[in-house]
Simulated scan of single mutants.
Amino acid sequence: MSQIDARLAELGIELPAAPAPAANYVPFVQSGAQLFVSGQISANADGLILGKLGAGMTTEEGAAAARRCGLSLIAQAKAALGDLDRVKRVVKLVGFVNSTAEFTEQPKVINGCSDLMVEVFGEAGRHARSAVSAASLPLGVAVEIEAIFEIA
């Protein structure tokens, strides 16, 4: 068992299956020592996590949705690499939050994913990040996040 797999087990985290692309793109691309993972949308075992922050969805619910995006990002990295111990660093996350014009807590929402990366990868999980609002997201989901990983 890899160190990261052991860490996931210790945290009681079970990764979902790596989601298939919903359109004409690939889920990940490796270029040199970097792995680019396409945007992962908020979903759980029950289906898509839909909603708009600032219009019936709380910041805490949004952060939970962002955490689910993070689980899918890690699942995609595992599908691409086979072994999560090959992740040397989470380089950058770009998070999109389906929110009203008045909602201003996008960073707190995307913290759901950022916190997960640090829980799982430790110091190597600390990353650069963007957290922006979107008037809508694909399929009406609450959050979408993409990632760049440095790999061995």
Rank of each mutant, 00 (worst) to 15 (best):
T59P: 10
A64S: 06
A75D: 03
V97A: 14
G95R: 09
Y25P: 00
P16V: 12
T100E: 07
P27I: 09
D83G: 13
V94P: 00
A22F: 04
I110M: 08
M117T: 04
N24P: 04
F103C: 07
F103G: 12
E119D: 15
T104I: 10
L35C: 08
A79N: 09
G70R: 00
G70K: 01
K88R: 14
V109K: 07
E14F: 04
Q76V: 02
Q76E: 12
A33G: 05
S38D: 10
Q40H: 04
C69Q: 11
G62Q: 06
D115S: 14
P16C: 13
E119L: 11
F28P: 12
L93R: 07
I110C: 12
A33P: 00
P107W: 13
S42H: 05
A20I: 03
A77Q: 07
S38T: 12
L93W: 09
P27S: 13
G82R: 06
G47Q: 08
L35S: 02
C69H: 04
A65V: 15
N98L: 01
G32E: 05
L116V: 03
T104D: 15
L71R: 00
A65M: 15
D115T: 11
V90C: 10
N44F: 05
V37K: 08
A80K: 13
V91D: 11
G39W: 00
L81Y: 09
K52T: 14
Q76F: 02
F96T: 10
A64K: 10
D46Q: 14
Q34L: 14
M117Y: 13
L48I: 03
A80H: 05
N44M: 03
G51Q: 07
G51Y: 03
G39S: 01
Q76D: 10
T100H: 09
V87A: 00
Q34N: 13
M57Q: 15
K108Q: 08
S38M: 12
S72A: 09
I41W: 02
N111F: 12
P27C: 06
E105M: 10
N111S: 09
A77T: 04
V87S: 01
R67G: 00
V26T: 14
G39Q: 01
L35F: 02
L53C: 15
S72R: 01
V97N: 12
A75E: 00
V90L: 15
P27N: 15
L84W: 06
I74N: 02
S99I: 04
E119A: 08
A63K: 05
E61L: 11
A45G: 05
L35W: 00
S38Y: 01
E14S: 15
E105I: 02
S31Y: 01
A18E: 02
R89C: 03
A65H: 08
A80N: 11
Q76R: 07
R89S: 08
L48H: 01
L53W: 04
A75P: 01
L15V: 08
C69L: 10
I74E: 03
G47M: 11
G47W: 05
R89P: 02
A43Y: 08
E102K: 00
V37E: 03
S42L: 15
V87Y: 06
G54Y: 07
V118D: 12
S38P: 06
L73C: 02
K92E: 15
A18G: 06
V29Y: 04
K88C: 02
